[in-house]
Amino acid sequence: MITLRVNGKDRKLDDIDPSTPLLWVLRDHLDMVGTKFGCGKGLCGACTVHLNGSAIRSCSLPISAANGQSITTIEGLAKQDSNGVVQFHPLQQAWVEHDVPQCGYCQAGQLMSAAALLQQNPNPNDDEIESAMAGNICRCGTYKRIKKAIHTAAKAEASS
């Protein structure tokens, strides 16, 4: 049996092939489809989630390697306040305001990579953003807006 803590909730998986990538566990077994399948080889970043706070490619992580560990997905990026009202992460807010998405398919992975970046470096410059985000492909070419939104979110967090 595999146990995971996903977005703060304990989840148990009986009778699962231990080589199943975390991506497909989330999507097919736990019905959390925000994390996207893009390449299956860790090349595009669409499936990025946090494993114990670090950005990883869930398509390439066997579920056995995540056993007992803590996962955050795009569904867990926003927080609920004490009244149960959903509060967007500053990155989510900035993504909406700057109208970052085109097709939007890669954006969950972009956001999770960006969130991990801001955890480590609350005020990244352009070069730092580019190097942290180089593993996430956006076929629609929204990079300019992603960069802008990360700066906006960093400023919002600094002033909050």
Binding site: D31, M32, V33, G34, T35, K36, F37, T73, I74, E75, L77, A78, V86, F88, L91, Q92, W95, V96, E97, H98, D99, V100, P101, G104, Y105, Q107, A108, L111
Partner: peptide
């Protein structure tokens, strides 16, 4: 004017939207 995408809130929270998300 500058009008942001109607699906943006769903996209940034990972709600089901796309073909692959159907069940």
């Amino acid at each position: 004017s500058f009008v942001t995408g109607v699906d943006n809130p769903k996209i940034v929270t990972g709600e089901p939207l796309y073909g692959v998300d159907q069940k």
